[in-house]
Design a protein around this nucleic acid. Structure first.
Lengths: 118, 118
DNA sequence: GGCAGTACATACCAAAAGGTAAGTGTGGGA
DNA sequence: TCCCACACTTACCTTTTGGTATGTACTGCC
């Protein structure tokens, strides 16, 4: 990206939210403080280990805030920082694009894997 | 994602453009037909092998079109399909977000790696 | 023949990301 | 005492992605 001549900030955005799970985590936390187990449930299919790791990164990058309620059993929730909210706003178009094109892409994926086999 | 209760199409978008290089490729091809070597130059830091692989995927998913000019030396260019254009449009907010927050994120990255060492 | 330019492909490996299984700490209740 | 719920952590492994080095195909030129 260092040699790019056009202004593209995707390297920056991707540094924060790149990967399989971070975009989804950010999306699902947008409605307010969300508990670890609830984040996991909303996303589906992510292991506790990977979720913990990804949340830790997002907190470190200042887009998520972690609040420990000091209870037993533990109660911890995660919410977007103001900074994080700006990022999620930038993610929404991509989310909507996905929704609009879900059927089409599903078909494409099937065709693509057929071509690989054939 | 299957168990998600809120409509989030990010799984779909990420299926097409997920990963280190695809977003950047899509961004850099938006101005019209772009040759393999030019894509590589614009992006910077990507190997020929990985570029070829990523372009192949994007063509397979119908967001890029490959045109071979049947010359020697070979002349091949890649351009966005109409479908691909809609995707790049959805990527622009993320790109702009990255540009706006580049300095802030650079600082965060430095702090994050310091914390890991310390 | 060798060399050039271009767009790949192949072989093998490194690095990163993700996954499964089991473990830890804490207070509360039976 | 044991068991529970919750949010993690640790150990070890698998899968995916990216990387380096080299090779291939093609025509034209010296």
């Amino acid at each position: 990206m260092e040699q790019s001549e056009t202004p593209c900030g995707l390297d920056v955005s991707l540094e924060i939210m790149g990967g399989k799970w971070k975009p989804l985590i950010l999306y699902h936390v947008q409605d307010g403080p969300t508990r670890f187990s609830e984040v996991r449930r909303l996303i589906g299919g992510i292991s506790e280990k990977v979720l913990a790791q990804q949340l830790r990164d997002l907190v470190a990058m200042g887009v998520l805030e972690r609040r420990d309620h000091h209870r037993v059993p533990p109660v911890v929730d995660y919410s977007l920082t103001p900074f994080g909210k700006t990022l999620v706003e930038a993610l929404i178009p991509l989310c909507e694009w996905g929704n609009r094109n879900r059927a089409h892409v599903t078909k494409l994926s099937r065709n693509a894997s057929r071509m690989k086999i054939g």
